[in-house]
């Protein structure tokens, strides 16, 4: 049995409210909040970035699993805000976690789904016997151009998943649905991403998420009723709600994973932070549907069954607890934190 043996998360403590951003651009915060289902987003500290958050999430995952660091045979970091354009984030993480030098390692980039791709790679490496444990981390300090619609949701956070045998949550199966769909991109040397506006909806997010989910259920012979929880990539609160409805999932099956409502879209970390929110409360034998989405575009779907091992697994600090105790920034401080003013 192969699956998730541990998980860790990191959410920076700073927040900015939709009202504060809307004040700067003269927009209507009430309309924006109801349109996005997001009231505020997380902001990294001035000395935090994708690598630092990945390390913190990775450390928590290692500590909870009580696995010696040297047993991790692979580290993948998925992000679209790697601190270096050339030079891996994953080596920084491997070094800080004390994994040693003999491990498979790469940075991954597939917009917001790079870390679930990393989970698939780790799953395959464990299954083939090449490694005992593999770690996939999604971490992003999401970029958005000041004044762009993305600015209301582009948050920051990280989630680390350790894949191995004897898991707390078994990965029963995973499939991907991939096509060349330019809904959102960032060209070389451009500081901020561009997007296709409403084109990011039906042909991109909804088509890929539903196609991957349906294919997975077909393969396993499952229907929506076989899942106790579902978590989807969450660029805002509206998209996952709508896609849940399209697939027949009721609100109560997704609510524990809707971290986006509190911290915005954490890009590569988003669907995994949601998954961790669910793992924090899930019971043995409950089944979770996880579907990520990465622009460009693709979705990775997983059927995950919680095992008895979760009962002995330390879940005292929950993702939803980490969302609390935050410090609110005004827009000027937000720009400073995001190093847009120096």
């Amino acid at each position: 049995m192969i699956g998730i043996v541990s998980y860790g998360t990191y959410i920076p403590k700073f927040r900015i409210k939709v009202e504060e951003i809307a004040r700067i651009w003269g927009e209507d915060p009430v309309a924006i909040k109801s349109g996005l289902g997001v009231a505020e987003k997380s902001v990294p500290d001035i000395d935090e970035d994708t690598a630092t958050m990945a390390v913190e999430a990775g450390r928590e995952a290692l500590m909870r699993a009580k696995i010696p660091a040297e047993k991790i045979g692979a580290v993948f970091v998925g992000s679209e805000s790697h601190p270096y354009a050339v030079k891996p984030t994953a080596t920084i993480v491997g070094e800080a976690l004390g994994i040693g030098n003999y491990y498979y390692c790469a940075d991954l980039e597939f917009a917001c789904k790079a870390a679930t791709a990393g989970m698939q790679i780790c799953y395959a490496l464990v299954k083939s016997g090449m490694i005992e444990y593999g770690m996939s981390i999604g971490s992003d300090t999401a970029q958005s151009k000041p004044g762009d619609a993305l600015e209301y949701t582009a948050g920051a956070g990280a989630s680390a998943i350790i894949i191995g045998k004897d898991p707390i949550a078994e990965i029963e199966a995973t499939v991907s649905y991939t096509s060349d769909t330019p809904d959102f991109w960032r060209r070389e040397l451009q500081p901020y991403p561009s997007h296709g506006g409403r084109f990011t909806g039906a042909p991109a997010y909804f088509r890929h998420v539903t196609s991957a989910a349906k294919r997975l259920m077909e393969l396993l012979g499952y229907s929506e009723k076989d899942f106790d929880y579902a978590v989807f990539h969450q660029p805002n609160a509206k998209f996952p709600q709508r896609v849940a409805g399209m697939l027949g999932f009721k609100e109560e099956k997704i609510v524990d994973g809707m971290i986006v409502r509190a911290i915005g879209n954490t890009y590569s970390a988003a669907s995994l932070l949601g998954l961790c929110g669910i793992l924090d409360v899930a019971k043995p034998d409950q089944r979770i549907l996880l579907v990520s989405f990465g622009s460009g575009a693709g979705s990775d779907a997983f059927a995950i069954r919680v095992t008895d091992k979760i009962l002995d697994y330390p879940r005292n600090v929950r993702v939803w607890d980490k969302v609390k105790n935050c410090v609110y920034l005004d827009y000027a401080l937000y720009l400073k934190h995001r190093r847009m003013i120096k």
Binding site: D45, E48, A51, T52, V55, E56, R59, P83, A96
Partner: peptide, 16 residues
């Protein structure tokens, strides 16, 4: 906590 201490200008390495 793992953090950035600085960086060597805009093009140099980052000091974690």
């Amino acid at each position: 906590a793992f953090r950035r201490y600085g960086e060597d200008g805009d093009a140099g390495i980052i000091y974690y």
